[in-house]
């Protein structure tokens, strides 16, 4: 059997706060394979973002084991094995769009010519050709978020971690970006971890849906999607799609009542 890219065994995380310990993650077990598109869905406080940050090495679990490509998340972070997309675009306002995309490349010491080539390539991927010289504050929210995805893609890490990247966008823009993200995923075959609290978004995008619930943050259901890899937007009206959406909703409800 192939080794999973991300392997979580009994991961626990307790934050010490002024109001006492908060059990953010309890006994999380999950294997993510290469090329998977995994969505984490659940209400606020269920630990979905925290778990993504653990994978990214931005938080450290207090128990269990978590490996990324066989390394600790900290080592994986330092060997630059993933691109991370945050809830907000988080572009640096003093840099142009092209400059922002170059930022990780500069830090990783790419040669100059290679940088320009890659910037062009990812701008094209996210449909922002010709906007390289603009400043972030001159673009719409949707365009900024696309630029931040381009920035995460620029150094071609094999894992892409996305924390509610489209949460702040309106439904129409979100649909469009979801469709583009699927195309991107098909074109690059990256492993994607995607946090959301939209059921249709999770079902539409994922090969694997992880349903989580709060207090303490834990996994209540893992759904392997039977949908084909090729997914037009109107797949959302098919009985298969609606059935998976039902199962996700049931999982969320069960977690809430427990």
């Amino acid at each position: 059997m192939k080794k999973p890219v991300i392997d979580a065994q009994n991961v626990d995380l307790t934050f010490q706060t002024n109001d006492g310990p908060v059990h953010a993650l309890k006994d999380v077990n999950l294997q993510i394979n290469k090329g998977d598109f995994v969505s984490f869905i659940g209400p606020s406080g269920c630990g979905k973002t925290t778990f993504l940050r653990c994978i990214a090495g931005l938080e450290t679990p207090t128990g269990g084991s978590l490996t990324v490509n066989g390394l600790t998340p900290e080592e994986a972070r330092k060997s630059r094995s993933y691109g991370y997309v945050f809830q907000a675009a988080g572009l640096y306002p003093w840099r142009t769009i092209a400059g922002n995309i170059k930022l990780p490349l500069e830090i990783m010491d790419f040669p100059k010519a290679e940088m320009d080539k890659r910037v062009e390539k990812v701008l094209d991927l996210v449909d922002l050709k010709g906007f390289g010289k603009k400043y972030p504050w001159q673009l719409s929210g949707g365009m900024q978020q696309r630029a931040s995805i381009a920035r995460a893609l620029a150094f071609d890490a094999e894992i892409l971690l996305m924390d509610e990247p489209f949460g702040a966008l309106d439904e129409i823009v979100r649909d469009k970006l979801n469709e583009e993200l699927l195309k991107l995923w098909a074109a690059t075959n990256k492993t994607i971890g995607f946090v959301t609290h939209s059921i249709p978004e999770a079902v539409y995008l994922s090969t694997k849906i992880v349903v989580m619930s709060p207090r303490p943050g834990r996994i209540t259901d893992v759904i392997e999607s039977p949908l084909p890899k090729e997914r037009p937007l109107d797949i959302r009206d098919t009985p298969e799609f609606i059935e998976i959406a039902h199962r996700v909703r049931d999982g969320l409800r069960a977690g809430h009542e427990a």
Binding site: A56, G57, L58, R77, K78, S79, R80, Y82, G83, Y84, F86, Q87, A88, G90, Y92, W94, L103, P104, E106, I107, M108
Partner: peptide
Amino acid sequence: VDPMHRDLMRTYGATHIQTLHKLRGP
């Protein structure tokens, strides 16, 4: 510094000097 901007530098495995030069300085 915006915590998200700082986390971004961490995801790139940036050094203290790089973070100072590219983010905190500006």
